[in-house]
């Protein structure tokens, strides 16, 4: 029923882990988004995370902050976002996860937003400022319509991890390091320990994806080796999109994606 769940099952059968690639919709424009998605699909990404910009992205580092600002300035509205998603859906049935902040959904109404998103072709949501304590209405609106991916952190207690795992569907998003997206700290021992711990606690009931600060094939390799079911790469893609001219964008995205995906084959 869930495209994301099916994808993880399919990968397991093929003895692979998942590469989840993030891009900010409308950065730097609609055309680049469509092209980048083509590149991601051809390069072998398993799931695509589409960012919808928010004016105050507190969990994001400067790369995604800047992309949000540019996208908003270019006029990325919710209706525009959904129309882009529909265009993407005509080309691919890859699972699409929408990442944005709580206020965007709250303001429109959780039910209304989620049903419109679903109609456009969105399969799940990631809201980095949505804590489980405040999630009742959101969960109710998403139930049966979209997956709700919650985040955990290396400092999340075991009892809390279990509570969060219970309301998460699709996958569980482990924030690799203390910091915002795009942070450069290198691979930490505490992250590797956290991956093992979460895997043990969740007993394979839900896949565990690791994100924040992952930018190279080597990063991917190490996190997969530590037991992650998926890795999420975001800011590195935005940097690539920013510096690549439109006519070379698809091929550049393909080759970068291939280099990351290779590390998820066991």
């Amino acid at each position: 029923m869930s495209k994301i769940k099916d994808k993880f099952a399919e990968l397991e059968a093929k003895n692979q882990k998942a590469l989840i690639s993030y891009i900010m919709v409308g950065f730097p424009n609609e055309k680049a988004t469509i092209t980048a998605v083509r590149g991601l699909v051809k390069g072998g990404a398993d799931i695509i995370e589409l960012g919808f910009p928010f004016s105050d992205p507190i969990a994001d580092g400067h790369v995604i902050q800047n992309a949000s600002t540019v996208s908003l300035k270019k006029g990325t509205k919710i209706s525009k976002f959904f129309s882009i998603v529909k265009k993407i859906r005509k080309e691919t049935d890859i699972p699409l996860v929408l990442m944005t902040y709580t206020n965007i959904l709250y303001h429109k109404g959780y039910s209304k937003f989620i049903s419109e998103a679903k109609k456009a072709g969105i399969d799940g949501f990631i809201l980095p400022d949505m804590s489980i304590e405040e999630s009742k209405e959101y969960l109710k609106a998403a139930k049966g319509n979209a997956d709700t991916v919650f985040l955990i952190s290396p400092n999340t207690s075991n009892t809390r991890i279990q509570k969060i795992a219970k309301v998460s569907t699709g996958f569980l998003y482990l924030v690799a390091v203390y910091g915002t997206t795009g942070i450069k700290t290198g691979i930490k021992n505490y992250t590797l320990k956290a991956i093992k711990n979460v895997k043990k606690l969740t007993k394979g009931k839900i896949p565990v994806g690791v994100g924040f600060g992952i930018s190279t094939p080597n990063d991917v390799k190490k996190y997969i080796k530590a037991g992650a079911d998926a890795v999420i790469v975001g800011s590195a893609y935005l940097k690539l999109i920013e510096k690549t001219p439109q006519n070379k964008l698809e091929s550049k995205i393909i080759s970068f994606t291939k280099s990351l995906k290779k590390q998820t084959l066991l």
Binding site: S55, N103, I104, Y106, H107, K108, D129
Partner: peptide
């Protein structure tokens, strides 16, 4: 303002029709 979520709280906010502050 209208109701919304910013800086960890639900409260009245100055925001546009799309929920951008």
């Amino acid at each position: 303002g209208t109701k919304g979520v910013l800086h960890g709280m639900m409260t009245y906010l100055l925001q546009d029709k799309e929920g951008q502050i």
